[in-house]
């Protein structure tokens, strides 16, 4: 499996990463190497094996429907990059 610089750009777009132009080819080579290493997985016989998402065989606990979180807007927004009138500011969202 070889990753081309174009594919790197696509993946970087999906992940919303701005890559320096001189890094693209390097990343392409490095990710290709990693994928080669990871490619060993295809040799494993995993027929009828259930995927394992969690180490422990536990199930989800449920939380009671009780309000526990007070308003902490001031604390949460104290170090926020851009707020106004209690709202988080972002460049215009166009629908």
């Amino acid at each position: 499996m070889t990753l081309t610089p174009d594919q790197i750009q696509q993946v970087a777009h999906l992940a919303r990463l701005d890559l320096a132009p001189d890094r693209v080819a390097i990343y392409a080579q490095q990710l290709t190497n990693i994928l080669d290493m990871v490619g060993q997985l295809s040799g494993a016989s995993t027929e009828a094996v259930l995927p394992m998402a969690h180490p422990l065989d536990m199930h989800q606990r449920l939380r009671p429907d009780v309000v526990t979180e007070p308003n902490q807007r001031e604390a949460f927004q104290a170090h926020a990059p851009a707020v106004q009138d209690g709202l988080y500011r972002v460049p215009k969202v166009i629908e």
Binding site: L14, Y27, Q30, I34, V38, L41, T46, V49, P51
Partner: peptide, 28 residues
């Protein structure tokens, strides 16, 4: 960044089964 791209790639459409699901099976 490398790991974000690697992770984004293995989860993306068309690669999920071959990479992510297979890795989870090997994990078991």
């Amino acid at each position: 960044q490398r790991r974000i791209m690697m992770g984004t790639y293995v989860l993306s459409h068309g690669y999920y089964d071959a990479y992510y699901l297979q890795a989870q099976k090997v994990r078991r």
